[in-house]
Nucleic acid binder design. Structure first.
Lengths: 347, 347
DNA sequence: TTTAGCACTCAACACTGGAGAGTGCCAACA
DNA sequence: TGTTGGCACTCTCCAGTGTTGAGTGCTAAA
């Protein structure tokens, strides 16, 4: 719904101030800002209209107004502008992240985001099964245990322990890894998984000794392998001070829920499918527990496909003009990182 | 200091009840338990003695008594007995941890501990530089970037990205890794690091082409490598409900401090040097922020050397009889795991 | 040595009234 | 017709008050 100029202005002032103070905003305050040159009484009329249209509410009869979720959305759509200053500040912040490998890079970024936004920062790592195989290797740790190391083209390293039949010799392992490396270079792990499963089906037909070994080992390896993504988040303590979590039980519920990764995943999956910065507010989640929260997220890409997401979780009344460019920029960082790492040496 | 039988009994009843309720315990309650068959008035005399000796205090004139840190210590030393039932319960709990690799095993264990103790569970992973090299490998991701993968004999996989001189060819990398694997199998990473550093010193003397390559690459790799340990902890939300953290600021301070890993590390390092379960209470830490906390920890071993620690952090008034065997048992699990993984295939 | 009795202290709680912030409505005004 | 000042009203917040109950220390008697 479209608002008049003055309604917009009043809404903006209310949201701005609410973001600042987390307190209901009264007509007197709005009038005093001097932006509109109207008396409190007139402001009250405008507020009354805004309330009718669902953009603001009163917590109780004699209190000021608080923006509703639609109020927030209107505000975000209309009034958020990102200043160059913000952007250059952010570039500074991300100048020298220290990270020895890709996993640590995700970790550092998540931590950094949480630090500079004073909210919860998160990174969902790429689903491993969408990544291209660079290299696979088996190392025998002892008679029954083999360590499998899978490296993707983007430099992500995944390792798995595997119980193994003692009849399989060390040089069998070498042969199998050579075979897999030759055959499956530059296929995604999912493709490999599927193709291997198919071959297992066919195995009654053509069994030579090598394929048998491959099948035996791969079955062990791929059947129960978890190539999903990991959620890396930092800064949960940042939201403890926030007034919307004065209620300790609410806080506990929320943190508990987030330690259960699947809950977090469910929430965050919503922003996996679209490109660009996406904002969720309160009721969007459809979860009572987190109705006081907001989420700013953006996916990052590898070869133009979304492979993961990152962003910020905080109170609804976040400082969007600061946070949006942060999320935007860090997603670019990761996209570039993945491009650079998996870049040359293509087939 | 030694206490009389009756003093001991009163102290035990007070601590027991305080652990239960986190409320000061009064003479009437102690009398009512019937353990001593004394009236509240007599109990009061005994309590008065205990207070003089520093085992209990009154938060205010007309309240019941609360154990002091020495009260807790006395209690732990004298009265904790671990029942077989506890132990078999724990064994059940750890029956089926799912973990695909060593890192995930630490993660699962830390999570499991936090779940069953309703406190914070932590595992400090082994210092990588105390671990024996099993295998090192270089993978070129692109012209300038090489991924190094280090595997220890216990199956811990560490990977590092490294910028590299373009003049170094792929087969140089293979040769160098062969060289390192041959020469340094079954040395600790620290030994390797030192030996390589020494060789760099000598390099003016005997330079053949291979050593030069090795030195160039290793320098890159080992100079700034972080082979320290990682702190894995779960369940911070468990202490939110606890009455000793009613004060939100205290809670925030504490969680913040713990997100700074070095703080946690400093605290936890204290229990690195001794074998057996170690208990710290409140003032032991010498840190105001965490004076309300207790810590039960035990190191785990690899070849009779302490390489890491694990344990539980919670309010002082923890259920020690339950928690001590949990910590004890899980440390054994990890010790055994490391022994099994790095076990055979020795030199 | 133990106990009953008593006076005393303190936290916790419910209740009260006043102050302050904010509203809606109305009548008056430009 | 839009704007404004005035006014009655509502509600939260807070400080002050009295009451209750739990617990103590002390004393004198058993």
């Amino acid at each position: 719904m479209e608002l008049t100029k003055r309604e917009e202005t009043v809404l903006r002032i209310i949201v701005d101030e609410y973001i600042n103070s987390s307190q209901p905003v009264g007509s007197r305050y709005v009038s005093k800002t001097g932006v509109l040159n109207l008396s409190p009484a007139s402001i009250r009329n405008i507020m009354s209209d805004l309330e009718e249209e669902g953009y603001i509410v009163q917590p109780h009869t004699s209190s000021g107004r608080v923006p509703t979720d639609s109020g927030f959305k209107y505000y975000i759509d209309k009034f958020i502008t990102v200043s160059d200053e913000h952007i250059s500040n952010i570039k500074m912040e991300f100048q020298n992240l220290d990270a020895a490998n890709v996993r640590e890079m995700f970790d550092s970024i998540s931590r950094k985001i949480s630090e500079i936004t004073k909210s919860i920062g998160f990174v969902i790592s790429p689903k491993l099964n969408t990544m291209y195989l660079k290299h696979i290797e088996f190392l025998r740790l002892n008679a029954e245990t083999v360590l499998t190391i899978i490296v993707t083209k983007s430099g992500i390293v995944h390792n798995m322990l595997m119980e193994i039949d003692e009849s399989i010799k060390d040089n069998d392992l070498v042969r199998v890894s050579n075979y897999l490396n030759d055959k499956f270079q530059n296929k995604t792990l999912l493709q490999i998984q599927n193709q291997l499963m198919d071959e297992m089906e066919d195995k009654k037909n053509k069994v030579n000794e090598l394929t048998e070994k491959v099948i035996k080992i791969s079955e062990n390896l791929f059947r129960n392998a978890d190539f999903g993504s990991e959620i890396i988040l930092h800064g949960t303590s940042n939201i403890i001070g926030q007034p919307e979590f004065k209620d300790v039980d609410k806080l506990k519920d929320f943190l508990n829920a987030f330690e259960e990764k699947h809950f977090a995943y469910q929430i965050l999956e919503k922003c996996m499918n679209e490109n660009g910065v996406k904002i969720f507010i309160g009721s969007d989640f459809g979860e009572e527990k987190i109705s006081e929260l907001g989420l700013v997220a953006k996916p990052y890409l590898r070869e133009d496909n979304v492979v993961g997401t990152l962003g910020v979780i905080g109170p609804k009344r976040m400082k969007y003009p600061e946070i949006i460019p942060i999320v935007d920029f860090t997603a670019e960082i990761i996209t570039n990182l993945l491009k650079k790492l998996g870049g040359s040496n293509e087939t």
